[in-house]
Amino acid sequence: MPWALLAPQVAIVSVFFFWPAAQAILQSLQVEDSFGLSRQWAGLENFKTLFSDAAYLESFKTTAIFSVLVAVLGIAVSLMLAVFADRVVRGVLFYRTLLIVPYAVAPAVAGVLWLFMFSPSIGVVAYGLSKFFGFEWNHLLNSNHAMTLIVAAAVWKQISYNFLFFVAGLQSIPKSLVEAAAIDGARPWRRFWSIQFPLLTPTTFFLLVINMVYAFFDTFAIIDATTSGGPGRDTVILVFKVYIDGIKGGDIGGSAAQSVVLMLIVVALTVLQFRYVEKKVSY
């Protein structure tokens, strides 16, 4: 009986999760000839090639910059909004409703929206930048602009999530603490830094991990829709590289080795999330 109940889940998990994952690990240890006719054991050959490949290391760096920017900016902006939302008495529901809408927007659609605003020839924002600030925006040529664009779109999409968690976190801080501080003469700014912000540490740390995971894995669609990795390969994050090398480039062994590296990253992030978020960083 319990087996029958578990059967659907276990079947899906084994066919679509474990089997492909095992394949990826297997393929990462093999090399295929140019025609795909035979495979040979290669040991860690694929990994060696991978880590001596400048483009791959570059992609690591791009991913690191991208995810740190997304996590830090996303958290900072949402925290600010949440703190002010906590002060607002009237209209909270209205603000909250509008702020959570980006969560519902698909990453690919979010990418298209931001691309449209920042398109060098027709985008309203690009036009405004050039007209009022004399700033020539062109994410097709300038890789800093391209990075800014994908960070902005990714942060925009994630604000809703962070905001809701900060609002919940702020509400769970006992009112008496804040009131006591106010009686002791602490101004709002002081109260925020000495009481609310430290007490929010568990939420902040949790969001930091979640945002990193988001930036690593869920932003594929945003990048594909806006820059497609360009200019050159300057916005190719790791997940995007697995996709271009594997699907478009047909490099099975190399792509599998990249998958294995990514798996290790996910495992590390998940362990971090479960081990530390729950236990260490709490009051």
Partner: peptide, 29 residues
């Protein structure tokens, strides 16, 4: 039932295998 723990962990581990990390082999399946 026997292997309850195994199933539990098997399901848990899938958290660490998003589509993004197993693109090509899953496509092949």
């Amino acid at each position: 039932f026997p292997m309850r723990g195994v199933f539990f962990w098997a399901i848990f581990v899938t958290l660490m295998l998003p589509v993004e990390v197993r693109i090509l082999p899953t496509y092949k399946v």
